[in-house]
């Protein structure tokens, strides 16, 4: 009995629902230098939660699918470009990255004196940008005052002739342009959201004792799309202009985060090795396609006591990335089918209900206060087994619809 119980989570339904008041985490944050508090964009810990434009879960999942489509497109494009390079030919390149609903935000300081900005943090993109006055074309409404470069004594524009300006081609997928000798960036995401503006440098403040001088970022003059009321985006990808690369000397390309289990609690984003848990298990990054994404290898999935029968090539052929900006994990169709089939089998005592958006395995748990759900574990390369938290297994749509929080890619080659 004890062995069986160790393969199940006993979950109070109420614990899956966000509370109306913020309960900050006592772990991680404030114990270490270079640590930022992470909170959900639409929860009570965020000052953005009062935003009237808070999307429904259905809208979030629709945006999530736009982001996923765009990631697939970008990686396929990289594969095509690799073929092109082999052939020493050239094709026109179009950038495509959906921002969708980035969901988790951190607050940083920019400029001198510093101005606080709430940015979506994203391991699936590279360029850090914020909306800038005078908003020559369009700025969307944001919660923080829009950054005014004229008011910062440490702000400068980047010249068109600088090496950093030319690096924008890989960072954004678009060649930079030039306006009165100032480098102009343009980044467009797969859902047609975009930011265009001056490529700039200024001091970025992580904490009162931790400043990054001459940080390269986009000072957006024309920003439109699904950015909510945030001030922009913090790019934590692998490319040369990402925050991670720009601060390599300071933090050694090492960062960690914890995303809270509900929108009413907080997590942390920490730069540098200091204070990382001693019980971390590491999996090697897999060979990357493109310069941005973090690839890892999934080698197996278990549900409760059952190890799913999935051929290694199902994961190996398309590959897998980890992304803080995608909401729902996408699995190859064969892997998802095995997962959902076994999950349904072990959840058969609970009444099922119709699909919701991209989520097709849903239950009516309104008559229960406590449920027992099978643990789901992922095994990554290097035999690293990771148990998902209950919040990583089920997502609550409403009191009568709770769904398995996974979805399938539409094509095995995605």
């Amino acid at each position: 009995r004890r062995a069986i119980e160790s393969h199940y989570h006993t979950v109070e339904i109420s614990s899956l629902l966000p509370a109306s008041v913020c309960s900050p985490s006592t772990k991680g944050h404030s114990k270490r230098p270079s640590t930022l508090k992470v909170f959900h964009r639409h929860g009570p810990c965020s000052k953005h939660s009062q935003d009237n434009a808070t999307p429904s879960l259905d809208e979030i999942l629709t945006h999530d699918q736009s982001r996923v489509d765009s990631i697939q497109h970008k990686i396929n494009l990289n594969a095509e470009m690799d073929k092109v390079k082999d052939k020493k030919a050239a094709l026109p390149v179009q950038s495509g990255r959906a921002l969708g609903s980035g969901n988790y935000i951190v607050t940083l300081g920019l400029g001198t004196p510093k101005k606080s900005l709430s940015l979506i943090f994203d391991t699936g993109s590279d360029l850090t940008w914020t909306q800038c006055q005078p908003c020559a074309r369009v700025c969307y409404k944001q919660q923080d005052p829009i950054f005014n470069p004229i008011a910062s004594t440490t702000y400068s524009n980047v010249s068109c002739s600088s090496t950093r300006c030319s690096q924008l081609s890989t960072t954004t997928g678009n060649d930079p342009s030039c306006s009165t000798k100032t480098c102009v960036y343009g980044i467009q995401y797969g859902d047609q959201s975009f930011s265009i503006g001056f490529f700039s440098q200024d001091t970025l403040t992580i904490s009162s004792s931790d400043l990054v001088p001459k940080f390269y970022f986009g000072c957006g003059q024309n920003n439109q799309g699904l950015f909510g009321n945030t001030a922009g985006l913090l790019g934590l990808g692998r490319d040369s202009l990402s925050f991670v690369s720009q601060t390599a000397q300071r933090y050694g390309k090492y960062f960690s985060y914890c995303l809270p289990s509900s929108s009413s609690s907080t997590g942390h984003l920490t730069f540098g090795k200091s204070g990382v848990s001693s019980n971390v298990k590491f999996t090697p990054f897999a060979a990357s396609r493109g310069t941005s994404f973090y690839f890892i290898d999934i080698v197996g999935i278990s549900v409760g006591m059952t190890q799913l029968s999935i051929r290694p090539s199902v994961f190996k052929t398309p590959g897998t990335i980890i992304d803080s900006g995608t909401v729902i994990t996408r699995l190859p169709p064969a892997a998802y089918k095995a997962l959902s089939t076994e999950f349904k089998k072990q959840m058969k005592k609970y009444p099922s209900v119709p699909a919701y958006s991209i989520l097709d395995t849903c239950y009516d748990l309104s008559k229960y206060t406590t449920i027992s759900i099978p643990k789901i574990s992922f095994t990554f390369g290097g035999n690293v087994k990771v148990d998902l938290a209950p919040s990583g297994i089920l997502i609550v749509i409403n009191s009568s619809r709770v769904c398995l929080a996974f979805a399938a890619n539409s094509d095995a080659s995605d």
Partner: peptide, 30 residues
Amino acid sequence: VGILGNVQQTTLEVVYDVAGGKLGFAPGGC
């Protein structure tokens, strides 16, 4: 590609050792 999304990463401490070429996970990060 498959994508490990943020719902599945909740409560884990996720550690990016980019220079060391590895990604770490630990339970109970927040």
